[in-house]
C-alpha cells in the first residue's frame, strides 16, 4: 500500500471548540442541467436520492450526501471513510460512464482537491465569525445547510450538520494556512 499524506493530520481541542481532519472521504463534483430529465433520473437512480434544487440545501442517504453548490453544480460526498489503498471508486466510474460519457453532464473526482475539517462544539460559529462575513445566525441557515463563502480570505464551503457539528471544506493547498488560522482564532475565544 502506498503511503498517504493528508495536509493536516492533526486534531485540536479548545474551549467548546474542537477540530480534526476528516479523511479520506470521496468527493465527486457533479455538473448538469436540472431541466434535462434524463440527467435527473439517471443521477437519481445511481445515487438513490433527488439532488437538492434549492440554494444552500443538502440531501443525504445512507452512503452519500449531496451538497448544492450552484444551479448546475453539486458535490457528492461519501458519508464514511473510504479505503486508502486504492483510488478507484465504483460510484465515480458508474456516474462517469452514465453521465459524462453520454454528454449529460460532467463527473469529476475532486477527492483530494478538498480536505474536510470536522468542527464541533458550541463555539464553532464564534470562531468562524472572526474571519467569515456570512450570517450564521440567519433563519435560512439551519441544520443540513451548506454555504460557499470565505474564511479569512480563503474560499471555503461550510456544511452545517447541526449546531455543534460542522464540516468545513477547504482546498488542499490552503489547508495548512487555514488550520493554523483556526487554531489561532480558537485560542482567542
Amino acid at each position: 500500500m502506498l503511503d498517504f499524506f493528508t495536509p493536516v493530520n492533526e486534531s485540536q481541542s479548545y474551549n467548546n471548540f474542537s477540530m480534526k481532519e476528516k479523511t479520506p472521504v470521496a468527493k465527486i463534483n457533479l455538473r448538469g442541467n436540472l431541466e434535462n430529465k434524463e440527467f435527473v433520473s439517471k443521477v437519481g437512480k445511481i445515487i438513490g436520492m433527488i439532488l437538492p434544487n434549492k440554494a444552500c440545501n443538502t440531501s443525504s442517504k445512507e452512503k452519500i450526501t449531496s451538497l448544492w453548490l450552484g444551479p448546475n453544480e453539486w458535490l457528492l460526498v461519501s458519508n464514511n471513510e473510504i479505503p486508502k489503498e486504492t483510488n478507484i471508486y465504483e460510484l465515480e466510474q458508474v456516474l462517469f460512464d452514465n453521465i459524462s460519457k453520454n454528454n449529460l453532464g460532467a463527473i469529476t473526482n475532486v477527492t483530494d482537491h478538498f480536505t474536510i475539517f470536522k468542527l464541533s462544539g458550541s463555539n464553532i460559529f464564534e470562531v468562524l465569525s472572526k474571519g467569515c462575513p456570512f450570517d450564521f445566525s440567519s433563519d435560512d441557515f439551519g441544520d443540513n445547510k451548506v454555504v460557499q463563502t470565505i474564511l479569512n480570505h480563503v474560499d471555503v464551503t461550510i456544511h452545517r450538520r447541526s449546531e455543534n457539528d460542522v464540516d468545513l471544506y477547504v482546498r488542499r493547498s490552503f489547508a495548512g494556512y487555514l488550520w493554523d488560522w483556526l487554531k489561532d482564532s480558537a485560542k482567542l475565544i
Binding site: F5, N152, H153, S173, F174, G176, Y177, D184, L188
Partner: peptide, 18 residues
C-alpha cells in the same frame, strides 16, 4: 487584526512541500 506575521498573506503549499 490577526493578519500579521504568518497570517499576513495566504500561504499555499504543494503536497510535496514537506
Amino acid at each position: 487584526g490577526r493578519n500579521v506575521k504568518q497570517f499576513f498573506d495566504i500561504v499555499r503549499k504543494t503536497p510535496i512541500h514537506e
